[in-house]
Design a protein around this nucleic acid. Structure first.
Length: 410
RNA sequence: GGGCAGGCGCCAAAGUAGGAGAGUUGGGGCGGACUGUAAAUCCGUUGGCUAAGCCUUAGGGGGUUCGAUUCCCUCCCUGCCCA
């Protein structure tokens, strides 16, 4: 009785939840749910599903996690669902990327690492973690058939990406059709009030409502967030496109990668990946549009902010300083890795060396880099790929714009 | 189950009625120039190696041939049509 939770007002909450959200369906229901939870002093169950295959979280993941954190801060129950069951089956989509099914051990490890990273955003104490194998694993084939009967092929095909693939003659495997249903069962099992996801999840989330209703569970409200564009400015942020900023990245990397994003998405990043208040957000938008401010300065502010969020203000300042040093003044980064020649090794062929320190995957690639003027030692460009590097004193080998290594003397 | 069309370098397409295919075009990537590690633009590059040469490569395997990405057999995969 005494530990009744005090929630912020429904209006305040709604304003917070709306920020950045693409859709809240149905919005009225969310208001009702919030009112009810306030009246009864009972937090809502906020669901977010996560895939335990890739434990490296990036800003793209952070968009939805941060939304979850907002609910959490207002006193609601955040529930992370680890999709261990689905990944045990293995995802065969994309023929050439046959990922071996994960073992239970690996999933545990991944989930742990996911949670550790997510804890930079969520309050770990107040986050509930459940594995969906707990209920999906218990379903019999008969249960699956029964579940499947609740949905029609036509409805499944309504889904945008299915339709597109279908029309485009791109294969859709049967299990992919079952996927939304499996995810919907998660919502039934935990009786979620709200499920969060990227806009690409809209269909899956909606299926959850239908299946919950079938199971006499009050349908969840769905809230979708935009997909964060990657640092290339075109594709969605994803590890496979290598256009991501990892929340576990070093200050240096977060800072550098942020500065490489195109101007068009600066505002987007501020809105979705940081907590800057809405007035400031507006201000940024104006500045970007009126042309009186160099977008670079806003981008630098963004980069500092992001480093601050995942590290600290000092780290942010240091990262900026180092960045300027390396890229403005063409100096050296602080922590250059070192290469120690083997015993008695007094010299090494340049190409061999580049491959040895993993700055190029092959001799041929190294040769190309040299021929194109991408390789220097102590700021002096090397153009002869046949040259030999002597380990007579400390030298700095630079390949491309950002690969440095200190060669120790022998 | 029957018929048809496909499967080539990271991706997408073109082409080959057996001989110029490590190779065409576009995208992407990488390096360089210019910049703000932005965009746009320009130049170069994009299998490997012990490197003026050599090796591996066209879904897998086998065959015909002096020679196969191209022809034949077989298996696998995908899409479409019919049932």
């Amino acid at each position: 009785m005494s530990n009744k939770i005090i929630f912020p007002s429904v209006n305040e909450q709604m304003e917070l939840y709306r920020r950045g959200a693409v859709e809240i369906i149905p919005e009225d229901d969310l208001v009702k749910k919030l009112e009810k939870s306030e009246k009864e002093g009972k937090p809502l169950n906020i669901k977010l599903g996560c895939d335990p295959t890739r434990p490296d979280l990036h800003l793209g993941h952070s968009v939805v996690l941060r939304k979850l954190a907002q609910f959490q801060k207002c006193g609601h129950q955040a529930i992370l669902i680890i999709g261990d069951f689905t990944s045990l089956i293995g995802d065969p989509s994309g023929r050439n990327s046959t990922r071996p099914p994960l073992t239970a051990e690996e999933i545990k490890e991944n989930a742990k690492s996911y949670f550790e990273q997510a804890s930079k955003i969520l309050d770990p104490e107040k986050t509930k973690i459940v594995y969906n194998s707990e209920w999906l694993g218990k379903m019999s084939f008969a249960d699956v058939i029964k579940l499947s009967s609740k949905y029609t092929v036509a409805r499944m095909l309504e889904r945008d990406d299915f339709t597109n693939r279908f029309k485009g003659g791109i294969p859709i495997s049967m299990h992919e059709i079952l996927y939304p249903l499996a995810q919907a069962m998660d919502s039934v099992a935990i009786e979620s009030d709200v499920e969060l996801g990227g806009t690409d999840q809209k269909f899956n989330l909606l299926v959850g409502r239908d299946i919950q209703r079938e199971h006499n569970v009050e349908p969840q409200v769905i809230l979708t967030m935009p997909l964060l564009v990657g640092t290339d400015g075109t594709e969605k942020m994803s590890k496979s496109y290598d256009n991501y900023i990892g929340i576990n990245d070093t200050p240096k990397d977060i800072y550098g990668r942020t500065l490489s994003i195109p101007d068009e998405i600066i505002h987007n990043y501020f809105e979705l990946a940081t907590d800057v208040p809405s007035e400031e957000l507006k201000d940024i938008k104006t500045k970007l549009e009126d042309g009186n401010t160099n977008p670079r300065d806003l981008k630098r502010a963004l980069a500092r902010k992001l480093v601050e969020m995942y590290h600290s203000a000092e780290d942010a300042a240091r990262a900026e300083e180092e960045f300027d040093n390396v890229f403005k003044n063409k100096g050296l980064p602080e922590d250059v890795p070192e290469y120690k020649p083997g015993d008695g090794e007094t010299e090494c062929g340049l190409l061999e060396l580049i491959v040895k320190v993993k700055f190029a995957p092959s001799n041929g690639e190294a040769r190309r880099l040299v021929q194109q003027g991408g390789v220097s030692i102590d700021s002096e460009k090397l153009s002869d790929f046949k040259s030999v590097v002597k380990f007579d004193k400390e030298k700095i080998l630079k390949v491309g714009k950002r690969k440095f290594i200190k060669l120790l003397s022998n």
